[in-house]
């Protein structure tokens, strides 16, 4: 039987050991897998739609776009536990006195790449939901890693630098980037508002993928065990403790944001 071919985007050098580790984990199982790396999510989604790959390890935006391109017929097979609890954190210098998003009216707000769910699309939605139109803010935009959907975290770091350089008052960061930064100790910047949880990545498949084959693949994936040192090494690199079945409701905010911001299915 042909292995399931999974697409992933090479946003860091670590992607190679991660997917080699997952591929090796599947070796000898009922349904083996191999992987193909893409330079950006647009190319990956196109390849999924063209049938060149069976599964795409998609960001939330790549998933939303795939839904749009398949008229909602694509399927989600699995996610990381950490994908269910993603958040955006608005941060400002200590003592800024911002208590909530409405306080940001008239402020300089640094946002990340236009295709980043956590650093741009959802922050803009959260601001809009708080009643702040673009005209109410001075947006400082960093489109520094377009194509990677914010995976590199680079545009978030650029946004934080802008706060430190006093070129912005507030920056929107993904929770993982914020947590990493604060491990250095007191950094003179504080969280002023944290978003509700939303979904991040998932394995997206076309409806043409045989369901039984997909289920065998997912069943084996879900057996990766945090307490197994070999599995754990891979899980740690990929940022999860366990693989879980999808919970698609938590993508609702991003679907709304994409619609409200009229983000096209392709660009």
């Amino acid at each position: 039987m042909q292995p399931v071919l999974v697409g992933a985007v090479a946003y860091t050098a670590n992607v190679v050991p991660i997917w080699e580790g997952i591929r090796d984990y599947f070796r000898g199982s009922e349904v083996e897998m191999d992987f193909v790396l893409f330079s950006n999510y647009e190319r990956q989604v196109e390849s999924l739609l063209a049938g060149h790959i069976d599964l795409a390890w998609n960001t939330n935006l790549a998933y939303v776009r795939t839904v749009g391109r398949t008229n909602g017929e694509c399927r989600v097979l699995a996610m990381r536990d950490s994908d269910l609890v993603f958040q955006t954190v608005f941060v400002a210098r200590n003592g800024s006195d911002y208590k909530n998003l409405t306080d940001l009216k008239g402020s300089r707000v640094a946002l990340g790449s236009r295709d980043s769910g956590q650093a741009r699309i959802l922050p803009q939605k959260f601001l809009a939901d708080a009643g702040l139109a673009d005209d109410d803010l001075q947006l400082v935009i960093f489109d520094s890693d377009v194509g990677k959907h914010g995976d590199t975290g680079r545009s978030e770091l650029d946004a934080l630098r802008a706060v430190l350089d006093d070129e912005a008052d507030v920056a929107a960061l993904g929770i993982t980037t914020w947590n990493q930064l604060t491990q250095a100790g007191e950094v003179g910047v504080e969280a002023v508002w944290t978003s509700p949880e939303y979904c991040h990545c998932n394995f997206t498949a076309l409806p043409t993928l045989d369901e039984a084959r997909a289920e065998r693949w997912v069943s084996h994936l879900l057996k990766m065990d945090w307490d197994n040192p070999e599995h754990r090494q891979i899980l740690e690199m990929e940022g999860l403790k366990k693989w879980v079945r999808p919970e698609l409701d938590v993508y609702a905010s991003l679907f709304e944001a994409v619609k409200e911001q009229q983000i096209p299915d392709t660009w």
């Binding site: 050098a13 590199t152 934080l160 630098r161 250095a184 007191e186 950094v187 003179g188 910047v189």
Partner: peptide, 15 residues
């Protein structure tokens, strides 16, 4: 410290 944290995250995440 914040700038150093940024340099750390940037460098290590890319490796």
């Amino acid at each position: 410290r914040a700038r150093l944290a940024i340099r750390l995250v940037e460098a290590v995440n890319a490796a």
